[in-house]
Nucleic acid binder design. Structure first.
Lengths: 132, 132
DNA sequence: TAAAAAATTTACGTAAAAGTAAAGACAAGT
DNA sequence: ACTTGTCTTTACTTTTACGTAAATTTTTTA
């Protein structure tokens, strides 16, 4: 039994991901997701849910909606034409470089935090404060 | 001979970091940096430069100006009071968790990119395309 | 010391990413 | 059938993070 439902409602997804309906509809307007419809009501398939996860991950990393759009484009079926394929691989590598930069940024920032904490602990020792 | 000058002008920093004077002044307005002055002219010390580096790193990671402000607060001298010290350590850990989340997000996103690339390479093999 | 280059403040403008509000259409339970 | 709750579209508003322009010093260089 896999945890994959046929369809999700919009509010189910807002609750799962802690975002608003406005946000989800905004992503649709921006072409990031394309849920099915029954009449006017949106029906979200597992793939829409996965795309939402991807979007939110990328958002946490500071990617813009436009950049996320590029990622999602690639995420779909690979094109049939050689030039397009090479272009896509180039774009994949661009995104990879961006992610590697972010990785370095994280390491540097963590180092700074480590220093802050050490300074605090040192100061606490000086003051004879318990570290609770 | 260390590469640490006494003072930097605002345009030196804009060139080094590829940002505008408006941006730097904006960060000052937001209280992130506090350059010296000679009359009305700003004189940036090495510490201001380091703070700029920190700001830009954090920005690439998607932290808001407000969040960066919190980081910079900690970056200064540790406080003298026990409660304050504990609070600061708590905040350090919060930021660390945020960074760990980002790290996980990077790993996931890289995995997706790897899949995209593999799909492309597979498709290229099918088509008998050289990988140039 | 005069002209050119760089710096300053003030203020209005803008793009991105939603928030919020209004008003109507659907759907579901009783 | 009716009400209650959910969903929809449309449109205006807001916040963040600067861009841009104007008018004015200040500093540097000729």
């Amino acid at each position: 039994m896999d945890d994959v439902k046929e369809y999700y409602t919009i509010t189910e997804l807002t609750k799962e991901f802690g975002i608003s309906t406005r946000t989800i509809r905004f992503y649709e307007d921006e072409g990031l997701i394309k849920p099915n419809r029954r009449g006017t009501t949106r029906l979200f398939r597992p793939i829409d849910r996965r795309l939402l996860q991807l979007i939110l991950r990328a958002k946490r990393l500071g990617f813009s909606i436009a950049e996320i759009g590029e990622i999602i484009q690639m995420y779909k079926a690979p094109p049939g034409e050689a030039g397009q394929l090479r272009l896509m691989i180039k774009k994949v590598n661009e995104k990879r470089h961006a992610l590697e930069q972010k990785r370095r940024d994280i390491e540097e920032t963590v180092k700074e935090l480590d220093q802050v904490e050490e300074a605090c602990l040192g100061r606490m020792a000086e003051l004879g404060v318990k570290r609770s």
